[in-house]
């Protein structure tokens, strides 16, 4: 007994196969749009930057005159900013990840902390800026200092590092844990001597990626009121400072056409730094990741 019309099936087949092929190319095209945009963006920016990107640009302070404008203050300022952000973010995030993965009891408080962290990851950066403005700049009277901005950015990248560190810690197999505990080692000895070292490449990779996000982040700095026309570099974390993305934004907003080229030069410097950091992260991930 044949219920199915085999001829119909055969007749429809070539259409189905053609459709499959067409869609495959369409999907491929979608994938390639990202690449096309990336290349366009880089070529467009480079062509604007060429002629303005030179040693003077890297060694002079910002200026209202196009021919004098430089990135020096912004580069040094961003480094200062990271000096605050990175240690604070690492300390808090890794401790949080260790607690959640190794110590936290399974209860409502822990669940709440976890939900809280994933929600924190979804808060727009500009809102973190408002937090920094009201808390650090105003309430704690830090002003628009390196410290205020650094702490704001540290809070912003905290959830990112927590999640990636949790994943690295979780990927250490329980057999290794049991081996250490089984020898009579204490929990902290196991955590600090076995688990943390095994998880460290993954943790560092996550940190680098988060930090490269912090370096390029502009919105919170605008909200905090980071200045764009300083002629000094900070001497302490309580001083005012400039930052690369902030400086780029200020240049983009300048009415004179030439400042677009200066902005493009700044972007190229920023992108090169980010690219180096990303490569470092990939290198660490591939080189040091422990396989079990």
């Amino acid at each position: 007994m044949q219920l199915i019309d085999k001829n119909l099936i055969a007749k429809k087949r070539s259409g189905r196969l053609t459709f499959n092929q067409i869609m495959k190319w369409l999907f491929f095209l979608c994938t390639m749009i990202g690449l096309v945009v990336l290349i366009t963006l880089i070529v467009d920016t480079l062509s604007d930057a060429i002629g303005y990107l030179n040693l003077d640009f890297l060694t002079s302070f910002s200026s209202s005159r196009v021919e004098d404008a430089g990135f020096y203050g912004a580069i040094i300022g961003s480094i200062w900013l990271m000096v605050v952000t990175v240690p604070v973010a690492i300390f808090v995030s890794v401790a949080t990840a260790l607690y959640l993965e190794e110590y936290a009891p399974k209860n409502r408080v822990t669940d709440f902390i976890k939900v809280n962290i994933s929600n924190l990851a979804g808060v727009p950066s500009v809102v973190f800026g408002l937090l920094g403005l009201a808390m650090f700049v105003r309430a704690m009277a830090m002003g628009n200092s390196v410290l205020a901005a650094g702490l704001t950015l540290a809070l912003m990248i905290l959830p990112v590092i927590v999640v990636s560190s949790q994943e690295s810690i979780r990927s250490v197999p329980s057999t290794v844990r049991e081996a250490s505990i089984g020898m009579g080692a204490t929990k902290w000895q196991t955590v600090s001597r076995i688990i943390l070292p095994a998880a460290i490449p993954g943790i560092i990779t996550g940190i680098i990626l988060a930090v490269s996000r912090a370096i390029g982040e502009t919105a919170p700095l605008v909200v905090i009121g980071v200045p764009t026309t300083l002629l000094v570099t900070p001497d302490s974390v309580l001083d005012s400072f400039q930052a690369m993305p902030m400086q780029i934004y200020a240049w983009i907003k300048m009415p004179q056409e030439e400042f677009q080229y200066i902005a493009a030069s700044g972007i190229i410097v920023l992108l090169v730094i980010l690219l180096l950091m990303n490569s470092l992260a990939i290198f660490i991930r591939n080189k040091f990741s422990t396989r079990y």
Binding site: G34, T45, I215, G216, I252, I267, L274, N278
Partner: peptide, 24 residues
């Protein structure tokens, strides 16, 4: 090959995208 490209694209600062929007 493709995934790292997407990662780079995801890592580009938004101020750079802003420049791309207004200038290109």
């Amino acid at each position: 090959i493709i995934k790292p490209i997407l990662e780079v694209l995801a890592g580009i600062p938004t101020v750079v995208y802003g420049f791309f929007a207004i200038n290109f």
